[in-house]
Measured scan of single mutants.
Amino acid sequence: TDVTFHVNGRNLHLKGADEELLRRIEELIRRGADIEELEKAVKEWEK
């Protein structure tokens, strides 16, 4: 799945995201995470 999140005026584009990653990103956004936290979560998922 390709999806782009718009967070605090910045874009986080995910290519090939699975349901697990999407749920994790949505949860972080609900908690008020900043873009750096979201990018870190994506990097951890990519490993």
Rank of each mutant, 00 (worst) to 15 (best):
G9E: 04
R30I: 09
H6N: 10
F5E: 13
K40T: 12
V7E: 07
H6C: 15
E19I: 11
E27H: 08
L38S: 01
K43S: 13
H6L: 13
L14I: 15
D34A: 06
D2V: 04
E39W: 08
L28S: 05
R31K: 13
V3R: 08
I35D: 02
R31M: 13
V42H: 03
E36T: 06
N8E: 04
A41T: 13
I29D: 00
R30Q: 13
R24Q: 13
I25D: 00
F5M: 14
E44S: 10
D34I: 06
I25A: 02
I29N: 01
R10I: 13
V42D: 00
L28K: 06
V42F: 03
E39C: 09
D34G: 09
I35K: 01
G9N: 03
R23E: 07
R24S: 09
K43D: 12
V3D: 08
V3W: 11
E20S: 12
D18R: 04
W45T: 04
L28F: 05
A41D: 04
E26L: 13
W45Y: 14
N8R: 03
E27K: 07
L38D: 00
V3C: 15
L28G: 04
E26M: 13
W45R: 05
E20C: 12
E36F: 06
E36Q: 06
K15S: 09
N11T: 15
K15I: 13
K40W: 12
E46A: 12
K15E: 05
L14R: 00
H6W: 06
R10L: 08
L12P: 00
N11V: 15
I35V: 06
F5K: 14
E20P: 11
D18G: 11
T4A: 05
W45P: 03
G32D: 04
R10Q: 15
F5P: 08
G9D: 05
A41L: 10
E46Q: 10
R23M: 09
L38T: 01
E39R: 05
L22E: 02
D2T: 05
N8V: 01
E37P: 02
R24E: 10
N11P: 13
G16C: 09
H6K: 05
R24I: 10
E37M: 12
L14T: 01
L28H: 05
V7I: 07
K47S: 11
R10C: 13
A41W: 08
E39L: 14
R30L: 10
A33F: 12
K40Y: 12
E26W: 10
